[in-house]
Design a protein around this nucleic acid. Structure first.
Length: 309
DNA sequence: ATCATTTGACCGTC
DNA sequence: GACGGTCAAATGAT
């Protein structure tokens, strides 16, 4: 299967690069400020400078990736060539060859052999990927409806990952998230939108809690550029809220998501895959960044993972 | 205007 | 035939 950038993509990487450059410049300014304010505090600020250098490296790596313009990038997912007229044509490939648009409604094939993960959490929390809700269904013998999400990049990058979320318990609130299929998308393509997030948005305050790397950085303005490592987090929080039914609203409180939901080591350049693994970006010889998975996954407190293959 | 969500309909699987 | 997963028009939000 051939890989290629979608036709509508070039402007997006351009915006991403612009934003990354700006972020890098801001980080450089911060480094200057830190250097100027050094003195007796030099030893205490050294970790901050180290962190800053890593942030700058992250920006540089991201810029390298985007500038490489390599259609066969190792992380790049296979993009379905849009030889067919409609997006639904690509769904699972189960549609009969000739049919009208209307006929294709609900046309799909269940993925029997897809990898599935289930995860029980007390709160609806971000998993580091951008999801778009596409359905909701009342399930037999279930008190609460099931919400269906697909990866936001399903059509622009051909990512086949989906998940469904179902509240399974009222008191204490418990949600079961089932992930189906692996992400093949490069989620950082959404980064510019996140960097430009509205600071007045109360949900972004919530996400800053989720993204707190350690206690030394608590101000959202200080950490906003770090969010670019986790492209979908704001979006998901934004998505989950309106998706809630009235009974879900009672249980859903994003602020309850403690910072320990994502225990991120500042010593790495981590990214969460949909399954809660910590992905670490490493650079290959040609400058490409390769995602590797580190086991065990993130410490989710008392959250429960189960895997079905 | 664009993008996300809602919701009823459709269809494959059991 | 029931159930569950997905589609897509309608609607809402920004």
């Amino acid at each position: 299967m051939e890989c290629c950038w979608p036709e509508n993509l070039p402007s997006k990487p351009k915006r991403a690069i612009e934003q990354l450059i700006e972020g890098r410049q801001l980080a450089t300014q911060l480094r200057s400020l830190l250097s100027n304010s050094l003195g007796d505090e030099a030893s205490t600020l050294t970790p901050a400078k180290d962190l800053l250098l890593k942030i700058l490296n992250s920006f540089q790596n991201s810029l390298t990736i985007l500038n490489s313009n390599d259609p066969d990038h190792k992380l790049m997912s296979p993009i379905p060539t849009k030889t067919h007229g409609t997006k639904s044509e690509s769904s699972e490939g189960s549609c009969r060859s000739i049919s009208t648009l209307k006929d294709r409604r609900g046309c799909y094939k269940r993925r029997k052999n897809s990898q599935t993960w289930t995860k029980d959490t007390a709160t609806l929390m971000d998993d580091g990927h951008a999801w778009r809700k596409y359905g909701q269904k009342v399930i037999l013998n279930a008190k609460f409806p099931r919400h269906y999400y697909r990866c936001t990049h399903k059509f622009d990058q051909g990512c086949q990952a989906t998940k469904h979320v179902q509240r399974i318990q009222e008191e204490p609130p418990k949600h079961r998230t089932t992930y189906i299929g692996q992400h093949t998308c490069r989620t950082f393509l959404k980064a510019p939108e996140l960097i430009l997030q509205d600071s007045s948005d109360p949900t972004s305050t919530d996400s800053s809690i989720l993204l707190s790397f350690d206690n030394t950085i608590s101000n959202k303005q200080d950490t906003s550029f770090l969010i670019s490592s986790f492209p979908s987090i704001k979006q998901e929080l934004k998505e989950e809220k309106p998706a809630m039914s009235s009974d879900d609203i009672i249980a859903h409180n994003p602020i309850q998501s403690s910072s320990s939901d994502y225990l991120l080591s500042p010593d790495r350049t981590p990214a969460l895959d949909p399954f809660g693994h910590m992905s670490v970006l490493s650079e290959s010889d040609n400058g490409d960044v390769i995602s590797g998975v580190i086991v065990p996954p993130v410490d989710f407190d008392d959250d429960v993972f189960s895997f079905n293959f």
